[in-house]
C-alpha cells in the first residue's frame, strides 16, 4: 500500500530556536496517527508545516506523491488536507448547509440572477452528517443551537463533503463534555472507515489510545518514539512525552 501522506525530515527554525528537528512519518488511507507530546513539543509546528501555514526550514511533505511543501494553506486544502482547529471556525448564525459550503456556496438562477440554493445545501449537510452518524434535528436552524459534538460534526462534514483525503484535528475534544468527547471519537472512527487519513493532536491519554492506529510522540521538537497502542502503555507514552526514553 502506498502512503497517503509522507512527511520527510521536517525542520523548522525560529531564529536560533529549533522548534522541530528531523521529523519524518507516513500515513496510510484510513489510518489515524496521533501526534502526542507536551506543550511546546512541536506538535502544532509540525501540523502547521503540513497545512501550509508555516514553510519548513527544510524537509518535504507529499500527499499521494504530490509535493505540498511551499504551497499556501488554501492550495493545501484544495489538494485534500483539511485542518480543523479547536475553535472550529463555524459561522454560528448560519445553518449547517451554509457552513458546509461557506466560500463555495451553491446557487441557482432565477430570471438570470443567482440565488443561494439553501435547500440543496441543507439537504447535503443533513446527508453528509448522517454518514457520520449525526441526525440534524432542524437543518434550517443556526448552528449555535447545536451541541458541541454536532458542531464538531459539521466541521468534519466539511472535510468529508469536499473529499479531503486527510483531516488534521487539533485537540478536538479539549473544550467538550464527556458525552460529546465520545461522540467525537465515534466521528473519527467513521471517518477512518470512509478511508480518510487522520492526524490527531492530543495530550489526552484516553483519547490517544481510543483513536490511534499509531502514536508518534514528540519531545522537544524530535520524534521521541513511535508505538502501536497495543504494544505500549500509558506510562511509557508519558515517559516518552517527558523525554526520558530513547
Amino acid at each position: 500500500m502506498s502512503a497517503l501522506l509522507e512527511v520527510r525530515n521536517l525542520n523548522k527554525r525560529f531564529g536560533g530556536n529549533e522548534a522541530v528537528k528531523d521529523v519524518s512519518f507516513d500515513l496510510e488511507p484510513g489510518e489515524c496517527v496521533v501526534l502526542a507530546g507536551d506543550n511546546g513539543a512541536g506538535k502544532s509546528t509540525v501540523i502547521k508545516m503540513i497545512s501550509g501555514v508555516y514553510a519548513p526550514t527544510s524537509g518535504t511533505v507529499t500527499l499521494r506523491g504530490d509535493v505540498l511543501t511551499g504551497k499556501t494553506p488554501e492550495a493545501v486544502r484544495n489538494a485534500g488536507i483539511e485542518t480543523i482547529y479547536q475553535d472550529l471556525a463555524l459561522a454560528d448564525n448560519l445553518d449547517p448547509g451554509l457552513n458546509l459550503y461557506l466560500g463555495r456556496e451553491r446557487t441557482r438562477r432565477i430570471l438570470g440572477l443567482p440565488f443561494l440554493d439553501r435547500k440543496t445545501m441543507r439537504d447535503d449537510a443533513a446527508r453528509v452528517m448522517k454518514t457520520l452518524g449525526i441526525t440534524v434535528p432542524d437543518p434550517s436552524a443556526p448552528v449555535r443551537e447545536m451541541s458541541g459534538g454536532q458542531r464538531q460534526a459539521i466541521a468534519l462534514a466539511r472535510a468529508v463533503h469536499w473529499k479531503a483525503g486527510l483531516v488534521i484535528l487539533d485537540e478536538p475534544t479539549a473544550a467538550l463534555g464527556v458525552p460529546e468527547q465520545r461522540e467525537v471519537m465515534a466521528l473519527i472512527e467513521r471517518m477512518k472507515q470512509q478511508g480518510v487519513g487522520i492526524i490527531l493532536i492530543s495530550h489526552n491519554l484516553p483519547d490517544i489510545f481510543a483513536a490511534a492506529d499509531r502514536i508518534i510522540v514528540l519531545a522537544r521538537g524530535v520524534v521521541a518514539g513511535e508505538r502501536r497502542p497495543d504494544e505500549t502503555s500509558d506510562e511509557e507514552i508519558v515517559r516518552m512525552m517527558m523525554g526520558a526514553t530513547l
Binding site: 488554501e74 486544502r77 475553535d87 471556525a89 463555524l90 459561522a91 454560528d92 448564525n93 448560519l94 451554509l98 457552513n99 461557506l102 466560500g103 463555495r104 456556496e105 446557487t107 440572477l113 443567482p114 440565488f115 443561494l116
Partner: peptide, 23 residues
C-alpha cells in the same frame, strides 16, 4: 440571496470562518 450576503453574516459572527473559507 447571494454569496456576498452569506459572507456578510458569517463575517459578523466569526471572522475566522470566512477567512478560512478562502474569502
Amino acid at each position: 440571496h447571494t454569496k456576498f450576503g452569506a459572507h456578510t453574516y458569517a463575517l459578523g459572527a466569526n471572522r475566522a470562518s470566512v477567512e478560512r473559507a478562502g474569502v
